[in-house]
Amino acid sequence: MSSLSVPVRLFLLFTAVLTVVVLGSFFWQPQVTNDLGGDFTLIHAGEPWRFADHAREVNLLYIGYVNCPDVCPLRMSRISQALKSLTEAEQNQILPIFISVDVEHDNPTAVADYAHHFGANFVGLTGTTAEINQVVAKFGATYSKNLAPDTQLGYTYMHTDRVFFLNQEGRVLDSIVAPAMGEEIVHKLKEHL
């Protein structure tokens, strides 16, 4: 190496850096996406429910709470509309999941009933605070309860407003922030089915 001229050394150094950058860009993005998600167990209608036992080809996840009057039912409706626009065979490859973060007020039956309203195959889950926190963190989501003593409800939750697309292992394939139209969800679903 010591016999190499300075321009050649610089060229080799540049080539090495370029190779690292190119290969890095190839592997970095998928790795970050797949770091999110994974298997989890929560409660469905009073019984333990493990994702791996029910997962389908593509699984849609929304995190909210039952007493959310505006955004949560809107997103759930959009998911429902998206599924209705697919063929029956396509629908059978998809599992829609709603997780409530309002452990204090949303009992397992209420969450299951709530999710079921949007479609016969919609699953509504809850759990203990520790379980919910673990699952929410797993998907890179967030939530927090804010007291609102001037309201009838007395509280509100801020929460991630994102529809997650999960593979059969529960890994995040994709997501859409605040989808306003069912078509956005359909488009993504067809990419991953």
């Binding site: 505006d70 509100t156 801020m158 929460h159």
Partner: peptide
Amino acid sequence: VELHQTREENGVARMQK
């Protein structure tokens, strides 16, 4: 009945009276 406002910031929804 109450009047509320939802706001969306950085992918997080929050609502206030």
